[in-house]
């Protein structure tokens, strides 16, 4: 399922609308080259979950928790970035796959690098750079398949 965006504002909106598809317990692995707009996407996603403070890249903090305000039972957004993690132990230590069971979702930038740590039920979001401003945002993963219709609406 893919959605094409042009410019950061459109990528942010794609993130905001994507947030409406999320449920408590979701782990989203977000990938794309540096500068593709991963953090921009997450900023929109955070707004879509009702996070009031601004989401910044967690590159130097590994994981940030944001309190969410929405009516879908998602109380916390765990925003992680595993790019600078030097060992998988550190990713395991985050225990994100278990933390999300407590009314939360996790978005992991560069998460596909450590995908097996997160298990099979994940949603993957890959942002591809197609031109200066153009991006193709592809959503897949076993965790996404049970909401294909809503994903298709998001993509169109």
């Amino acid at each position: 399922m893919s959605r094409v965006t042009v410019g950061p504002a459109a990528t942010e909106l794609a993130g905001e609308e994507f947030a409406r598809l999320l449920r408590p317990g979701d782990v989203v692995l977000l990938s794309g080259p540096l500068g593709a707009g991963k953090t921009t996407f997450v900023r929109g996603l955070a707004r879509g979950l009702g996070v009031s403070e601004r989401a910044t890249s967690p590159t130097f903090t590994l994981v940030r928790q944001h309190r969410c305000h929405n009516d879908r039972g998602i109380a916390t957004l765990h925003h992680a970035d595993v790019y600078r993690v030097t060992s998988l132990d550190e990713v395991l230590d985050l225990a994100l796959g278990e933390l999300v069971e407590e009314a939360a979702v996790a978005v992991v930038e560069w998460g596909e690098l450590a995908a097996p740590v997160f298990g099979a039920d994940v949603v993957t979001v890959s942002i591809a750079v197609t031109s200066d401003e153009g991006r193709t945002i592809d959503v897949d993963g076993a965790g996404a398949r049970d909401r294909a219709e809503a994903m298709a609406r998001w993509a169109s």
């Binding site: 990713v91 395991l92 690098l113 450590a114 097996p116 740590v117 298990g119």
Partner: peptide, 15 residues
């Protein structure tokens, strides 16, 4: 014994 770790190492070092 985490079991998932071993699978992930290969991916990680190719980063």
């Amino acid at each position: 014994l985490y079991l998932r770790e071993a699978d992930a190492v290969a991916n990680f070092v190719t980063r």
